[in-house]
Amino acid sequence: MKYQMLKDMLMRDIYVDFIREQIKSGDKVVALEADLAKCSGMIALQKEFPDRVINTGIAEQNMASVAAGLAAYGFIPFIHSFGPFVTRRICDQIMISICYAKQNVKIIGSDPGITAELNGGTHMPFEDIGVLRSIPDILIYEPTDNVEFKKILPQILAHVGPVYVRMYRKVPPSVYDENKDETFNLFKAKVIREGSDVTIIASGIMVAESLEAAKMLEAINISAEVIASPIIKPLDTETIIKSLKKTKAAVTAENHNVCGGLRSAVSEVIVENYPVPLRCVGVKEKFGEVGKQAYLKTAFSLNAIDIMSAAKEVLTNK
């Protein structure tokens, strides 16, 4: 079989391959689906391991609490649905059955933000991080790319406690070179480009946009530092503040409502630790809509050029 480069893989396949490995090598991991196993790619595993892949049908609330019961029984369940249906729709089940009951359940929400594309506003989560961020103990993680995701998944499994993952399903933009021996820590943000004038803090698909924005800024003699912040809760305060002490200006970039998401998390940290001017790129109090990603990026001002404008603007406030 021809080796497939990580950067060319569907992100969902990295998830499914990981679960397959865990089911084969251990007796703890179970995967739950609510009639979207075809969309996650889990359908193949469901046929292979009918006992360990449980399809609850279209009943996400039940799926979350069933997972909590399995966790109470000693299993480590991974539950999946589209982002909105595995967060805002089942917020109370996540809160009570999983988090309050201290159950070790991993929550995989696919198609974050505009990546829901043709499914449109009903399926386009801009609020999932905001909904979950006020619940104690849950970790919120949005993979930067396939290389990072593959290395972080074992850490998600090893962490005892609930983790919410905003998982892209398709081939995500590539940020890291898989041939370099890059290491990742679930709890750490990463400076992926050094700069001195402004810090761009980004998550998910916005990391690649931020790198492009940094190049554009360089052309006009603005030196931008870029931090990939896949861990949104708990935010890696140390890395962010260290960078801001150098640049003294911040821009956040996220594929989520700026209210409740990365902008909010970063603002909280800045205000308490090291107040500097901040501008944000993200969805600004709008509902989702249908369209291809290119259209949606423009409709919601999520392009590199928007990050560049925000950086230029924040510098005037320094």
Partner: peptide, 25 residues
């Protein structure tokens, strides 16, 4: 106490999860 409950409707689902777990084991 085998399960945390109080938000009505969720406990039965948790019990179903345990029963599935017992079947697997």
């Amino acid at each position: 106490v085998d399960m945390t409950t109080g938000s009505l409707g969720q406990g039965l689902s948790c019990a179903v999860g345990m029963a599935i777990g017992s079947k697997i084991r």
